[in-house]
Design a protein around this nucleic acid. Structure first.
Length: 535
RNA sequence: GCGGGUGUAGCUCAAUGGUAGAGCGCUAGCCUUCCAAGCUAGUUAUGCGGGUUCGAUUCCCGUCACCCGCUCCA
């Protein structure tokens, strides 16, 4: 394929991006002087400016000035900052304790790893009496019938698929054989368990290559209080959403909100990922921007469609190009436990360099139904029903929840990847093409030379501008190096005070993307930049 | 967790079983009217831990981190 010119859809090198992030103070490996720690990253001086800009923009667009709804009126969304550590019962109710540490098994032969509930054991209704070593085949869920029969033939087993019980590996111990080798569906006390060493893994000819199922605990644990025992065990939250549900009743009772309304929260969440990968994309400590939208069950579809469109538009508004974004509907089998019964889940995906030419999740918009409120009703014993007397006749119901849940950390990565623009023609060979509104540094004030009264004029301008937006003053080294540095950190406007300035009271504004310069009166500069930031 | 790769200064790269070099950057100063110019001085490194050896950055073992593939991702 011929590539005529660089454009926003060109793949960039992750190595280059990671190197730039370190060199220019965006993102560092956590505790690097001690050799780092897998899955954790620190935001440097410029990284935190960028992250805060994205975070504040979300907060502003959700909580301060929420979107206009389908009926033409502004939506109501209130903010929240719940504790990272909650009563552990919260996570029992949410299903995070227990349900989500999927048991995994490894195959010693092929080195493959499987989710135990995705492996299907083909248990013969009767084992061959004369052959107590008979193998029992195991296949990945969804393996075509022909393939299974092929393997039976190959291994010369006298086995008929129609006389097999297909059960997930996780349920194996519920089954057993009697002395005459008839299969019991549910194993009564005293019968023999199925011998695991007879299992033949997928892609393997001999039995007994699968390891015992291992639990992966995806929640971080800690202890509250000085004494560490079972009763003091607490968890670091794996999502911010639950705080919105546990405070739902407080907010409905006290904040004069009426369904539909939203509760928004930004904060750290922690997941003990099996394999942290791809820079800050999958890290064990990360930041979420989640909004739980409570609505009548009949309106769930409407709000789901509203939020998925609204959220995609938002990413475009902060500078992510349309061609690098896509909406992807989840298949039925990848839906989360809470979304199974709902209208579905849509991911807003970004074309990250490491998913290229594919896409990776940036935000998920999910219909969580009333799963969470039901769970918290059950576990806490507190009523969560909403009483709506704005309609005739008045009605009681448990609201359904539409949840746009965005990754702030992933958002920062997407903005960096999106902004990274190669340009061999400039000294820096690249620049960060941030949308000016989220650029870490909005403007740099630069005296062309550090004498002739230019620093005095430049400083006066700087002192004024710094009160309005993030501005840097830099008088060191020659002007070309300063332009190059600001290209690398994505400063959209460089304002240079030159030797004509004392005479004409004007400066040049140098535009990052075009390197073009425009002469602007000193007293118009601030307004000029401010106007550009709003566009 | 498995397999493969990588690890020397902030960055890019060199070298060696015996004092670890360069360019760029960075800091200070000089000079300079617009895109990493020039001059002077300074700054910084063998991921970590063992072993072999008189001596290890180099050879061996382990470990950690990062990258690629598999696996996983509520």
């Amino acid at each position: 394929m011929e590539q005529e010119k660089m454009n926003t859809t060109d793949k960039i090198s992750m190595d280059d991006l990671v190197a730039l992030c370190k060199r220019r103070g965006f993102i560092f490996p956590a505790s690097e002087i001690y050799g780092g720690i897998n899955g954790f990253w620190d935001f440097g001086p410029l990284g935190i400016l960028l992250k805060n800009n994205l975070r504040d923009r979300w907060w502003n667009d959700m909580v301060i000035t929420p979107p206009i709804g389908p009926n033409g009126e502004p939506l109501k969304i209130v903010g929240l900052d719940s504790s990272i550590i909650q009563n552990p019962k919260v996570w029992e109710a949410s299903g995070h304790v227990g349900g989500f540490s999927d048991p995994m098994v490894d195959c010693r032969e092929t080195k493959k790893r499987y989710r135990a509930d995705h492996l299907i054991v083909y248990l013969p209704n009767e084992l061959e009496q004369e052959n107590q070593d008979q193998s029992i085949l195991v296949f990945v869920e969804g393996t075509p019938k022909q393939e299974i029969e092929k393997k039976i033939k190959k291994l010369k087993l006298s086995l008929s698929l129609s006389q097999c019980e297909c059960i997930p590996l996780t349920d194996l111990d519920k089954y057993g054989y009697t002395e005459d080798y008839g299969l019991w569906l549910l194993r009564p006390n005293g019968t023999k368990k199925v011998d695991r060493s007879r299992l033949v893994a997928p892609d393997v000819k001999k039995p007994d290559t699968l390891t015992e199922a291992r639990q992966f605990n995806l929640m971080f644990e800690s202890s509250a209080g000085a004494v560490k025992d079972a009763a003091s065990k607490v968890y670091l939250r794996p999502e911010t959403a639950q705080g919105c549900f546990t405070n739902y009743k407080n907010i409905v009772d006290n904040m004069r909100v009426r369904v539909p309304f939203g509760i928004a929260q930004i904060g750290k969440a922690f997941r003990n990922e099996v394999t942290p990968r791809n820079f800050i994309y999958r890290s064990r400590e990360f930041e979420q921007m989640e909004m739980e939208w409570f609505c009548h069950p009949d309106e769930a579809r409407l709000w789901f469609d509203f939020w998925k469109d609204e959220r995609k538009k938002w990413w475009e508004a902060v500078g992510v190009s349309t061609e690098n974004l896509q909406l992807r509907q989840h298949d039925q089998d990848e839906l989360s436990h809470y979304a199974k019964a709902g209208v579905g889940t849509v991911d807003i995906e970004y074309r990250f360099p490491f998913t290229w030419p594919g896409f990776g999740e940036l935000e998920g918009v999910a219909h969580r139904c009333d799963f969470d409120l039901i769970q918290h009703e059950k576990h806490s014993g507190k009523k969560m029903e909403y009483f709506d007397d704005s309609v005739q006749p008045p009605r009681r119901f448990l609201p359904h929840v539409i949840e746009p849940a965005a990754g702030l950390t992933r958002g920062v990565l997407a903005l960096l990847a999106e902004a990274y623009t190669a340009d061999p023609s400039r000294p820096s060979k690249m620049y960060l093409k941030f949308n000016p509104s989220i650029a870490p540094v909005k403007a740099a004030v630069l005296p062309l030379v550090n004498k002739n009264g230019l620093p005095e004029i430049a400083q006066k301008l700087y002192y004024s501008m710094r009160t309005k937006f993030m501005t840097e003053y830099d008088a060191k080294s020659n002007i070309g190096k300063r332009y190059a540095r600001h290209d690398e950190i994505g400063t959209p406007f460089c304002i240079t005070v030159d030797n004509d300035t004392p005479k004409d009271q004007a400066v040049t504004i140098r535009f990052r993307d075009t390197m073009a310069q425009e002469r602007v009166a000193l007293d118009k500069v601030e307004g000029f930049v401010q106007k550009a930031l709003k566009e």
